[in-house]
């Protein structure tokens, strides 16, 4: 099992000792979105809010927040940040404000918590500045976009496994995506990196008369369990099997719901409700 570095062997929280780690240049980028009504976004663009300039205030709030991260996150080390940037972009297709943050330093530990904190607080500040005219704003998509430097190497956000870049620190796991083909026939071509390994158990296995199947991610309308289930139920003779009963699903041996994202190499298992004990 993976060890959490913030827990000691008794499972108690502790701050990781980084005194023997080397100083390296480190950078982390993060993002968040504040989704809102288009009228609210228009008001920001025209600087018509009673509280003043939303974007300038959010930018300063994000920078200040990055510097206070160790006060907020219990096991975070205090860091001497050498650069914090907060960029705000008005996106009328959302509609909302996209926040991009970056933190840099030369030090012994990563700066992703600082970048996330900057993005969070910039988003909260936008909410605070605009809540008088829009109470239904949503803060979404908070995540680390990229990290560089340090022992774990470079990393970038890739929730659907569509870029090899995310695994550049581990070339053995580099991914390849097969070109989209028009064919929808069921193929069994295991061991290809763009494949999902789909497994079936118990009554479902007997109904399908097979216990496994490789499905290319490129055949799905989106990289999610729901899209895979759609695809399976569209196969000749399988609709009844996949829709008539309650099924459970596990991705990489952990039970998940239908919204769960998929990436190349995932093991996805479908099975009837469990009846052990």
């Amino acid at each position: 099992m993976t060890q959490f570095t913030h827990l000691d062997e008794r499972g108690q929280a502790h701050m990781v000792d980084v005194s023997t780690k080397h100083n390296t240049f480190r950078e982390a980028k993060a993002q968040a979105c504040v989704r809102m009504q288009s009228a609210t976004l228009q008001a920001i663009a025209e600087d018509k809010l009673a509280k003043g300039d939303v974007l300038a205030t959010a930018r300063i709030a994000g920078i200040q927040a990055a510097k206070r991260t160790p006060d907020l996150i219990p096991l975070c080390h205090p860091l001497l940040l050498t650069k914090v940037s907060v960029e705000l972009e008005l996106d009328f297709t959302l509609p909302g404000v996209r926040i991009y943050t970056a933190c840099r330093l030369s030090g012994q530990t990563g700066v992703e918590m600082e970048a996330l904190t900057a993005a969070s607080v910039a988003a909260l500040t936008i909410y605070d500045m605009c809540k008088a005219i829009d109470k239904q704003m949503q803060i979404t998509d908070l995540c680390v976009l990229a990290k560089s430097g340090g022992k774990s190497g470079d990393w970038s956000f890739d929730p659907y496994g569509t870029q090899a870049a995310s695994l550049s620190a581990n070339p053995d796991l580099a991914l390849g995506i097969q070109p989209l083909t028009a064919s929808t026939e069921i193929e069994s071509t295991p061991n290809s990196a763009a494949e999902l390994e789909v497994r079936f158990f118990a009554g479902l296995r007997e109904s399908l008369e097979r216990d496994q199947l490789s499905v290319s991610l490129t055949r799905l309308t989106s990289p999610s369990v729901a899209a895979l289930l759609d695809w399976l139920s569209q196969q000749p003779g399988w609709q009844e099997v996949f829709t008539a009963r309650r099924l459970l699903v596990a991705v990489n041996q952990v039970m998940v719901d239908l919204e769960h994202p998929l990436q190349a190499g995932d093991e996805v298992a479908f099975f009837p409700p469990v009846t052990g004990g």
């Binding site: 099975f271 409700p273 469990v274 052990g276 004990g277």
Partner: peptide, 22 residues
């Protein structure tokens, strides 16, 4: 265990075999 562990029972009776329902 009854609801989270992936075990499935198939019962064999004089009148046939069937997978036990939840």
């Amino acid at each position: 265990l009854k609801t989270q562990a992936p075990f499935w029972k198939k019962e064999h009776t004089a009148t046939g075999d069937y997978w036990v329902s939840e």
